[in-house]
Design a protein around this nucleic acid. Structure first.
Length: 632
RNA sequence: GCCGGUGUGGCUCAGAGGUAGAGCAGCGCACUCGUAAUGCGCAGGUCAACAGUUCGAAUCUGUUCACCGGCUCCA
């Protein structure tokens, strides 16, 4: 006799061939949305036979766990449909992921996006037929025999560290899988195949490239609809599309990965940079500028030649090899070393808006997010080892102010540890990693560890901002460096009169100013807050007779530092408003006979609409109250 | 770099072996207008580049380049 309970409810089952589903029913937990169960906190199929009692929970598609199972089962459903339509296809892995699932397949010939509806239709057929899903445990030997014709499954099975593996079958389709899965395919309704892409087997470039099909599934049709709408919304926010429409920047075949910034894009970039300068001056940073092209020998000494050469552009001057800088650190060090430094000068924070060039492989370029030339809002801080925690904490505060207070971003923090290709001793790395951990923990900053992802010269803290599609972008980073100071004989004279080696902290806040702009474009969907908007106020004369008055207004506002434009086209009012609206200009000033006579302006705000007539002073006051971190 | 897709006027896109089309934008003319598109007219393209097949190629084939979706890599 086995005892089961769920909160207040309980039941006893004598039959030793009872399934978890029987238990769920006996406990009165059954329902349409129930697709799996938990027995003593372990996720299981409903069809599992029970051989121990305990706490039972029904898992529905409403829970994150249930949704994951649903998606994983949808991946299997897709695989079954593909096997029917493309016999002889071999299957790799097909997991549930953040917003859906994928399956990597090795198919003879090619599948293109236009084939997806066909596969979807087949999936609906199987789901409609309510194909049952069953689990079977097998010894590894049997499983290897069973999947003898399947090279990928064979590889996976032989790496599993257990005597038995489980196989899931639905109709003619069988797959190696840990499970659990939905009890039958009829549970799967609200799914959609999304896209197709190549993906290396097991994520390694050395392996064969398989075809990956992405899809998603949800518990309800509404959730699926909401999700596909979100994808459409994300497309509308695409910074490449908005960059073109708002005339911010352009990309050309003549310079792949080298963006061209237009006047309006430069307004945004310069406003960001002004803000950045102001905040850094406040915090004791000193700004420097170092050359684009430097002698190869410098890069040999810095270690970049050994660890970063494939990303560097080279050139020759007077028969000597020079490199176009991919990083700003060696230049900063040369500046530091122009004088003998005292501990009294430390921490010395040498900031640089350094333009760096890095050779990125063709396939990775992406608008402003991934380019070959970008501006790092860099700083190299030379510091006594005992002050690391204090300085790192101050940088984290600066980051927090930028990201959350000024731009309203959510972000997550990662600690990246020693990579395979790196310089330095174990002790140095341990000390550096411990220092960063200490700073994170003493400020109660939640973080995850990203093993092996540090820079070649030291571990780092990375800040990842989340964009509108839920993609994350690395922006800020704080990197500790115990290597370069030694390599370059960087020193300071300590209180004791002796020479010491400082620690070097590399850090950026925006990361790449270009990328940060791209993220902002998507974040704001092109509707930049007042302080960043390229055109802040559009003056709209109703008829040609009002242009003179409009010009007088423009003059007045220009003198107050407001960015103003006039729409002098001989178009109707509605048209001019529409165009200003599409350009997402924060304020429109409609001026006609009435305004001209009363020396007023008709104010329209891009999202609130018509705010009525105001005197100039009243409107100036409205502008004064706009958020502008560059004002104070 | 790898897999798949795409490349037609400034922009968005149609055309698919017989020599290029629309809407928007631009320019001109008329209208002088009150809160999201006024009307008429004009001009604008060696159909990404190069090679090939063909009597004839934007259209078929190949190569290259760029872009898009991913993979790998990354700020």
């Amino acid at each position: 006799m086995l005892h089961f309970k769920n909160g207040e409810k309980s039941c006893e089952i004598a039959n030793d061939s009872a399934t978890l589903h029987d238990v769920i029913k006996a406990l009165g937990l059954d329902g349409k949305k129930v697709i799996a169960a938990k027995l003593n906190d372990e996720l299981m199929d409903l069809s599992r036979n029970v051989n121990e009692g305990g706490e039972v929970e029904a898992v529905t598609t409403d829970s994150p766990e249930g949704l994951e199972i649903l998606r994983h089962s949808t991946a299997h459903l897709m695989a079954q449909a593909i096997e029917r339509l493309y016999p002889g296809t071999h299957f790799g892995i097909g997991p549930a992921i953040k917003d859906g699932f994928y399956y990597d397949i090795d198919v003879a010939g090619t599948i293109t996006e236009s084939d997806l509806p066909k596969i979807e239709a087949e999936m609906r057929k199987i789901s409609g037929a309510g194909e049952k899903v069953s689990r079977e445990d097998m010894s590894k030997e049997d499983a290897l025999k069973f999947f003898a014709n399947d090279p990928y499954k064979t590889e996976l099975i032989s790496e599993i560290d257990a005597p038995t593996v489980s196989i899931y079958k639905q109709g003619e389709y069988a797959d190696l899988c840990r499970g659990p899965h939905v009890p039958d395919a009829s549970k799967i309704h609200n799914f959609k195949l999304l896209s197709i892409a190549g993906a290396y087997w097991r994520g390694s470039e050395k392996n064969k490239m398989l075809t990956r099909i992405y899809g998603t599934a949800f518990a309800t049709p509404d959730e699926l609809k909401t999700y596909t709408k979100r994808l459409e919304e994300a497309k509308l926010r695409d910074h490449r599309k908005l960059g073109k429409e708002l005339d911010l920047f352009s990309l050309h075949e003549e310079g792949p990965g080298f963006p061209f910034f237009h006047p309006k894009g430069m307004v945004i970039m310069n406003t960001l940079i002004n803000f950045w300068r102001k905040e850094h001056l406040k915090r004791g940073y000193l700004e420097i500028k170092t050359p684009q092209i430097l002698d190869q020998q410098l890069w040999v000494r810095s270690g970049h030649w050994d660890h970063y050469r494939e990303n560097m552009y080279l050139t020759e001057i007077d028969e000597k090899t020079y490199a176009i800088k991919p990083m700003n650190c060696p230049g900063s060090i040369l500046v530091y070393k122009t004088q003998l430094r005292s501990y009294r000068e430390l921490p010395m924070r040498l900031a640089e808006l350094g333009i760096v060039h890095r050779h990125e492989r063709t396939g990775v370029l992406h608008g402003l997010m991934r380019v070959r030339c970008f501006t790092q809002d860099d700083s190299h801080t030379y510091i006594e080892p005992s002050k690391i925690k204090e300085e790192v904490t101050a940088i984290m505060e600066l980051d927090k102010y930028f990201y959350t207070k000024v731009f309203n971003f959510k972000y997550t923090v990662e600690l990246s540890t020693r990579p395979e290709d790196s310089m330095g001793t174990d002790e140095q790395w341990e000390a550096a990693e411990a220092a960063l951990k200490d700073a994170l923990e003493s400020t109660n900053t939640p973080y995850t560890i990203n093993p092996g992802d540090g820079a070649f010269y030291g571990p780092k803290i990375d800040f990842h901002l989340e964009d509108c599609i839920g993609r994350t972008w690395q922006c800020g980073t704080i990197q500790l460096d115990f290597q370069l100071p030694g390599r370059f004989d960087v020193t300071y004279i300590g209180e004791d009169g002796a020479e010491h080696t400082p620690v070097l902290i590399h850090r950026v806040v925006f990361g790449s100013v270009e990328r940060f702009m791209g993220i902002l474009i998507e974040h704001y969907a092109g509707a930049f807050p007042y302080w960043l908007a390229p055109v802040q106020v559009e003056i709209i004369p109703i008829a040609d007779t009002h242009i003179d008055y409009a010009k007088k207004l423009q003059d007045t506002f220009n003198k107050c530092g407001v960015r103003v434009e006039i729409d002098t086209r001989s178009e109707k009012l509605g048209r001019k408003i529409r165009d200003a609206q599409i350009q997402k200009i924060p304020y429109m000033l409609v001026v006609g006979d009435k305004e001209q006579a009363e020396n007023k302006v008709g104010v329209r705000e891009r999202s609130k609409g018509d705010l009525g007539s105001m005197t100039l002073d009243e409107f100036k006051n409205v502008l004064e109250n706009e958020f502008d971190p560059n004002k104070d």
